[in-house]
Amino acid sequence: MDPSVALFLNALVAGLLIGGFYAAVTVGISISFGILDIVNIAHPAFIILGSYIAYIVNQTFGLDPILTSIIVLPAFYLLGSVVYQIYYVSFEQHGQDALRGLAFFFGLLFVTEVILILVFGVDYRYVQASYIDATYRMGTFAIPMRMLVPCLLSLLMVALLQMFLTRTFLGRAIMAVSQDQLALRLMAVNPVRIKRIAFAISIATASVAGAFLIVIQPVEPSVGREYIGRVFAICVLGGLQSLPGTVIAAMIIGVVESMTSTYYGPSWAPAVSFGFLLITLAFRPAGLLGR
């Protein structure tokens, strides 16, 4: 194969793999921001928290990071409920004070990051698992397992969430909360309870995404910042509410980033998603698949 074609195809595959992972990172935002209209910019901080929990358990018990993240799902669910309860009591209840809610999450992001720095320092941390160093080779393609495993599992997670949202009563209630709260109340469903459950689920996904993150790359507390723009770019590009849209947008951002770092150098890659976000917001705020 022509080397330039091989380079291109490898960049494409790498982009698709990282895009799958981005879908897992963004799905929480798609639920909290897209469906519930809660601007949880602290989401990346919860992801990093998930990474560090996977790290601690991996270091002390040698447990697989992704398995760990699934075990601690209930804890993250609980954390999400608590955060939503605070948010609801102090902001949402009193009507639309978006400005203060934003500042609240911004503060939360910052506090989480600094606490992680105080506890763990700014060194990069990594985990050990059998598949992290393995690479699957096929001709000129090299597919590292540390990319493939998170990608496939995150697609599985998004598919499960999509099934939950469209097939179950609770899931449909969550979708309904974003459309018509009054109607929900008339059906004797408490919208606050539904929103709390949905927000808790969105935080729970951060646990799994955090484990994927630390499998893919070493993590330090401020890594989360690069993800703020990325996840919102993907979420907006994907049309906010739609999980399939999120997956497609995640793949697009992943591929464009991978192409940029292959052809222009990695130092330009962060600008891609943010640039994409700025352009999308300026010209097509409804997103690619938006109505």
Binding site: F33, V39, I41, A98, L99, L102, E226, I228, G229, F232, A233, V236, S267, W268, P270, A271, F274, G275, L277, L278, L281, A282, P285
Partner: peptide, 27 residues
């Protein structure tokens, strides 16, 4: 650039602008 944006979208766009400018300065 952010004429049509309100509330959260504006805030996120400003964050994005900061990163784009930082990438430009880094390069």
């Amino acid at each position: 650039l952010t004429l049509r944006l309100r509330g959260a979208f504006f805030a996120i766009a400003t964050l994005a602008l900061a990163v784009v400018l930082q990438t430009m300065v880094v390069n």
